[in-house]
């Protein structure tokens, strides 16, 4: 029982993890961040396609969501990593990507791609709900002033929709942080892989999995605070200075303009 747990090992895993673990943690974070950004972009594109006048775009968007929400993420990860090159007939997933100052393992690349594309299917519905929540009169007012659809979308609809999109987006990122652990199965050395390998070397499952669970909890908890900060900032900038969508994000991240942990002075 509890007495058989080596609490020293747990303590080391929690408080003094080794260098390899920090590399794994960093990898978990950047995989999640890149995949989430990819998911948001794909989700936005798919949502706009879904609302297009062109039937073909609506159908494509529907097929995309149908497939990626209808099959297991794990299957998608394996498919992208192992089957996509064969299926496509060209090398989508190289053994490694060498971008000069950084090198990316093929498995990591495949993992980010799979997580991002999967996430896009879920983000489409979130983005669409956000856009749908904005009164039609806003788009009509903007276009009747001579603004093109894209401009009206970017300056009028999306900044207002962002307030609706951000909370579920935060929840999606929370999931994303945890889903990166699936990439262990295609050989990505991320946080869970580090724990799994530690366990198989030592046969101390409680120690290693408790340790890694603690660190996932740290990541998701930190994210919860960041998310709350962003939401507060967005709510505040509804009545702050002029902010475009881009400026809002800059404001949310830039300490000099209030930062995410500082409340905006109330009016």
């Amino acid at each position: 029982m509890l007495a058989s747990v080596d609490w020293h090992v747990v303590w080391v895993r929690v408080a003094h993890p080794d260098h390899a673990f920090f590399i794994a943690l960093t990898r978990t974070v950047y995989i999640a961040v890149i995949a989430q950004i990819m998911g948001v972009i794909l989700g936005l594109l798919a949502a706009l396609m879904r609302m297009s006048k062109l039937r073909i775009l609506r159908v494509l968007s529907g097929i995309y969501v149908w497939i990626f929400r209808g099959t297991p993420l794990l299957v998608q990860i394996f498919f992208v990593y192992l089957a996509s090159n064969q299926l496509l007939g060209f090398t989508l997933i190289p053994n490694s990507l060498n971008g000069g100052f950084f090198k990316l393992d093929g498995a990591i690349f495949a993992g980010i791609l799979a997580l991002g594309v999967n996430e896009g299917a879920y983000m489409r519905e979130i983005v669409r709900a956000g856009i749908d929540s904005i009164d039609k009169g806003q788009m009509e007012a903007a276009t009747s002033l001579g603004m093109r659809y894209g401009l009206a979308m970017r300056r009028i609809v999306l900044p207002q929709a962002a307030r609706v999109i951000i909370p579920p987006l935060g929840n999606e990122f929370n999931n994303m942080l945890k889903n990166t652990s699936l990439l262990f199965t295609i050989g990505v050395y991320e946080m869970f892989a580090d724990a799994e390998i530690g366990y198989s070397n030592s046969f101390q499952p409680t120690e290693y999995f408790l340790g890694v669970a603690f660190w996932y909890l740290v990541l998701t908890t930190v994210w919860t605070f960041i998310q709350a900060g962003i939401e507060r900032k967005l709510a505040a900038s509804e009545r702050g200075e002029e902010l475009s969508f881009r400026e809002r994000w800059q404001a949310a991240w830039n300490p000099a303009r209030g930062g995410i942990f500082m409340r905006s002075p109330s009016r």
């Binding site: 009169g137 007012a141 903007a142 603004m147 093109r148 300056r155 207002q160 900038s237 002029e242 902010l243």
Partner: peptide, 28 residues
């Protein structure tokens, strides 16, 4: 052609000045 709606349809996330200047700046 300018159109004015029953429900005003001002842009709530922009100030009065931004509401008025956005279209001249970005569309014209």
């Amino acid at each position: 052609i300018g159109i004015v709606f029953q429900a005003y349809n001002l842009f709530p996330h922009m100030t009065v000045l931004q509401n008025v200047t956005l279209a001249p700046r970005k569309a014209l």
